[in-house]
Structure formats: C-alpha cells, structure tokens
Write a protein that binds this DNA or RNA. Structure first.
Length: 584
RNA sequence: GGUCCGGUAGUUCAAUCUGGUUAGAGCACCUGCCUGUCACGCAGGAAGUUGCGAGUUCGAUCCUCGUCCGGACCGCCA
C-alpha cells in the first residue's frame, strides 16, 4: 500500500474516494466496537474509522493494538461524517478503513502534544527533539522558517543578487567575539576559525566583481547564550557594490515587506522610521528601542545639579520615566522593581507618585516646589501615576530605565502583539573607548566607513569619540534584527583604522595582509547588511526564544541534549592533531 | 565569571516556608467494560534512589554546604 493523500487534505469533495493514508497515531479511541484512530502527518490529522461489521477480526485486532505514535498505513474510503469536527481542517470527513498495516511501533512517548505543542519542559523537549518537532507548533515554525528563507532568496534573486557559499573553515581574526577553533591535522598547532560572519569573504567577493551577493549563512560566536542568541546562528548576509546607505535601506525594506507578506501574509509599512543613535539612547535608553509604546525617558540632569536632594545633585545624569496608572503599586512590587534596578547595577530606584497633578510620597519630600514643577511638566501625565528615577552615570541611568521601560511595557501590556514597528538606527559613533583595555574599539566592526565629513579626523586621529560611521541597525519591536555598514574599500584607509585600534604593522600584515592586498587590485566601493534569520523567524512565529525556531538548537549552556555534544574524543584523534588535554 | 529561579512517578505539577505514620493529583501507561467518538467515557491497577554527594538531626523531599543539569538576567556578544 502506497499513500495517495496526506492527512491534511481530504475534504467533502473526496466523498466516496478510495484512499491510502500513512502517518502517526495521534490518538486512539476504542469504543468497544468502533475504533477511531486520529492519523497525523506534517499536513494535518484525519480520523480513521474501523467498524467491526465491515472488517475481519484480524484487521480489528491490529487497529486495537495501535498506540500513540505508532506509524501505520491505512486504506479505506472517504465518507462524510454524521457530525463534523470543527477543530480539524479535515473534520467534515473520515476514512472508513478496509485495511491497516503497522509500519513501526513506538514505545510510549516521553510527552504528548495533543494541544499542538509539547507538554514537557524545554530540557525534555530538547532531549527528544525528534518527537517535539512532530508537534503542530514546531512543524509550523519550521515551515515558516522555510518560507522566510525562500522569500528572501526569491526577492534577492529577483533584484539581481546571487547566492554564493563561503567557507566555514576560515581564519581567526582579532576583535569581536571569541572564535570557535578547529585544529588542523596537516599543520599541527595551527587552527581554522569558524566564521563569526562571512564579512571578509563577502567583501572580497565585491573585489571579485560579484557586485550583488547574498547567502543564508551560518555564523559562529563562542559567547554565552541568551534566548535570542546561541553559538551558531543564521544570517541573511547581503553585500553590494556601488551603493549608498539609502540603497541598502530601500533594498532591506523591500525585502522585509516581501518576507512578511509571503511567509505570514502580514503587511508592513515601508519605508521604516529612522532614529539617530543619540535620540534612541536619550528617549529610550537603548540602541534597540521598542517603538510600540511611548513611556519615553525624560532627562532632568540640568535642574538636578542644583537640587537639595543630594542623590540628584551628585549624579552625572538624572532621568526618569513616568507611568500612568501605577500609583497604587504595592510595596512588594516596588521592591521587585528596585531589586531589578540593583541587579542592573543601580544603587536603588527612587520613585514618587503623582496624585492629582502633584508629586506624592517617595522622594517628593526632598524636592523643592520648582523641581517638582519641572518634573511634572516633563512627565506629561494625563492621569495619576508613578515616576521612577535613575540618578547615576548616563550609561547606567539609560541601562536601568531602558530595561525598566521594556519590562513595564510588557507587564502593563502597553503594546499590541500583532504590531510590527520597524526602525533604522543611524548615525552610530564609529569608535568607543574601552577603559579596561585603555584603547579604542569600533562600535560595529573594523571595516566600517566613517561618514565623509569625518574622514579627515580619522586620518588625523582626532575627535575619535565624535566620529560617526556609515553604519546602521534595523530594529523591530525592541529586537536588533540587522546590522550593516558601508565598508572601507581603500587599503591605506583600512590600515589607518587597524592602527587606531592599536594593531602593530606586523599584526596587520599577519591578520589582514591578504585583505589590504586585495583592496589594491581595484576594490569597488561597497556596503551591506546582515539580518539575523533566527530572530526574524521567532518574531513572525510569536516566539520568545530563537530555540523555538531552530530545528536542533543548543541548550542555554551550549550542550546538544539530544546527542550529548560536545563530548570527549578518542585519544588517537587528539594525537593526530598533536593536542594534549590539560587538567582543569 | 556573577545574581536569581527551578530539578519530586514516563510527563506536568502539589507537599518543602513550619523536618515526623503510607510523598499526592492531572495526562500518559497497563487490565477490564463500552458500536459515533473526536482531548470519548466508566471501573480498577502499576508506576518514586524526591538530580547527585556530604553535613545538621532521634529522624531530611523539606534545613545547611558542595556539585551537576535546565532556564532568566548581568558581564560577554567587532
């Protein structure tokens, strides 16, 4: 018996047809005489009926022995059900079986997914991922991921981009994340690095005249995981020659509009809003603001300098957020927010309530009438509420209030989960000073071109903290979705950047000689962007964690719980690689 | 590396704060009954190294310490 249809496609119109279905036993219901099997495959569920009046006992016995997750093939006739099941797409029909074979039995599964998603915790789901992926939810997530990839490929191909693969055995480069290293057998003591991104390869493809490149590329970064980060992840890597920032913006906007429409039938508004890095930090405290709700940060640093409240007067920066309708916050809840602020590095979380247009309680008694007026004016509350203050360094004030803002946005349900608020963050600084290492670092990566008006400052190595780069992030609902820049394409200028970052001539030659050399052979101006696929998929699927949209993700602590990797290897393998393991 | 939360039956949870007889429940599993269920129903049953190791105690699932595993956040992530 070979299947003629899948378990999700039979309808009323198929009434009377002879069919063969194969799939997994989703649920069995033995009524003593009649036996119902819900047969499931990737496409859906179809009810199979075994009627002892029509079937030999042997067939009934087989049906009766079926248990959850047995794999069976059934032949029979499509019939319209007396009462339709509105919960199933195939609910108007059933298949009246005339034969059944068990393709394979199953031991009792460790968990069930009758409601469409697995009813076990993540640890167990990851251990038995091949079962977890049978659920509706995971099947759908994988399908959406596929549609997104397909849409990206089709869109970019249509625009003249071609997909070119680049090596995953690459070279370790300084800066950035920790590399995953792969020992070389042929060159003992030497290592490949798995690429953190195909950055250098794609730039060299531009030198190679390949003009418009993309790749759905796996990237590797050996850093601690988060719910939106794991050591291997996927980027829609894009690079193009002879472009401006504006070209990349419109290409990317078009691509996202196409992806959202094709993969999820969602219409998004383009062009996207744009915010400068500075305004994002000022108003939202983060460089990836969630624009679905207001709750902007307000700055009272200037007036706070003269405050009688020493906590304000002594702080470099005093900012606040004013939240309507939280004036009845319990002491316990307040304590939780305060702990949260402390966890983020703050000394505490000052607050005052706003009742009837006046500050009330909390720190209000330390503030003069004039100060209170300034705060009330800036707060712009239309009803009673509460104000949270952060008085600290500017970085810390932003960090605390930015995080608190996001938390409150979620807790108070200040946004519509079906809304998609994209924005570009532009005018990033090129460099930031690393006080721990006492040197300058690049904000994005080392290959970013400054804005033209700052070229001379770079050459002169002056005002480094003021220099803005031609680099941009794409943010959606508070998630950094993509990052990109216009690149440096001149050898000498690139070398200048390396030097500013503190690299010696020898290091430059050793690490990037090949790249600087390549640029001498007519490198075209170029730029690009790299949207993170996992994050795009997780947002479209409504998932909190990218692990829900990766078929076989690593656990938080970077194990594969299914195969138990990483694991020790044979001594002989290490010997071939001239590697000895040192005791910890 | 740090802070916090969790780990009890196959699984999801309860009991732990306030140590004490036999560690409970839903789903799953097993047996029987049941001819229109569709998360079928009914009756019965089996199922536990309370993650692991030490300590305190007459007595530890419960308190303490260590350790392992999972998760959230900070650091980290050009």
């Amino acid at each position: 018996m070979k299947r003629t249809d899948n378990c999700g496609e039979l309808r009323k119109a198929d009434d009377g047809n002879k069919v063969v279905l194969s799939g997994w036993v989703h649920k069995y219901r033995n009524l003593g005489g009649l036996i119902f099997l819900d047969l499931r495959d990737r496409y859906g569920i179809t009810q199979i009926l075994f009627d002892p009046n029509d079937l030999p006992k042997a067939a009934i016995d087989i049906a009766n022995s079926c248990r959850n997750e047995f794999v069976v093939t059934v032949s029979g006739t499509v019939r319209i059900k007396p009462e339709p099941n509105k919960n199933l797409a195939t609910g108007e029909i059933e298949v009246v079986a005339d034969n059944i074979i068990i393709e394979n039995e199953s031991v009792t599964p460790p968990f069930n997914f009758l409601n469409g998603k697995s009813d076990a915790k993540e640890e167990v789901r990851l251990q038995y991922r091949y079962i977890d992926l049978r659920s509706d939810k995971m099947t759908n997530n994988l399908l959406i991921r596929h549609k997104i990839c397909l849409a990206a490929r089709n869109y970019l191909s249509e625009k003249g981009f071609i997909e070119i693969e680049t090596p995953t055995l690459a070279k370790s480069t300084p800066e950035g994340a920790r590399d995953y290293l792969v020992p070389s057998r042929i060159y003992p003591g030497n290592f490949f690095a798995l690429p953190q991104s195909p950055q250098i390869y794609k730039q060299l493809l531009m030198v190679a005249g390949q003009d418009k490149y993309f790749q759905i590329a796996r990237c590797y970064r050996d850093e601690d995981s988060r719910k939106d980060r794991q050591p291997e992840f996927t980027q829609i890597d894009i690079e193009q020659s002879f472009v401006t920032e504006e070209d990349i913006f419109s290409l990317t906007e078009g691509m996202f509009a196409y992806i959202f429409k094709q993969a999820a039938d969602i219409d998004i508004k383009i062009p996207f809003e744009r915010l400068t890095f500075k305004s994002a930090m000022d108003d939202y405290g983060v460089d990836k603001p969630d624009l679905r709700f207001g709750l902007k940060l307000k700055n009272i640093s200037v007036s706070a300098k003269n405050s009688g409240f020493s906590v304000f007067a002594n702080a470099e920066c005093v900012k606040f957020i004013a939240v309507e309708g939280l004036e009845n916050l319990s002491r316990k809840q307040m304590g939780e927010y305060e702990d949260y602020a402390k966890h983020l590095g703050g000394k505490g979380l000052a607050f005052t309530k706003v009742i009837g247009g006046k500050l009330d309680g909390g720190i209000s008694k330390f503030l003069s009438g004039e100060e209170q007026k300034i705060i009330i004016d800036k707060a712009e509350l239309s009803k009673d509420g509460i104000i949270f203050f952060a008085a600290d360094s500017e970085d810390l004030a932003n960090k605390i209030l930015g995080a608190l803002r996001n938390r409150l946005g979620g807790e108070l349900k200040l946004f519509d989960i079906n809304e998609y608020k994209f924005c570009w963050i532009v005018d990033f600084p090129m460099f930031e000073f690393n006080p721990d290492e006492n040197r300058w670092q690049t904000m994005h990566h080392m290959f970013t071109m400054p804005k033209p008006e700052y070229l001379q400052d770079v050459i002169n190595e002056v005002n480094l903290d003021k220099i803005l780069g031609q680099l941009y992030d794409l943010v959606l609902n508070g998630v950094e979705l993509a990052s990109g820049s216009i690149r440096i394409h001149k050898s000498e200028f690139q070398k200048k950047i390396f030097k500013i970052l503190g690299m010696t001539d020898a290091e430059i030659e050793n690490k990037f000689g090949f790249m600087l050399n390549a640029f001498k052979f007519g490198a075209p101006p170029h730029g690009g962007i790299a949207p993170g696929l996992d994050r795009i998929v997780s947002i479209i699927c409504g998932e909190e964690s990218i692990r829900e949209v990766i078929a076989f993700p690593k656990s938080k602590s970077q194990n594969c719980l299914m195969m138990n990797a990483p694991s020790e290897v044979d001594k002989s393998q290490l010997e071939e690689l001239f590697i000895e393991i040192r005791k910890k």
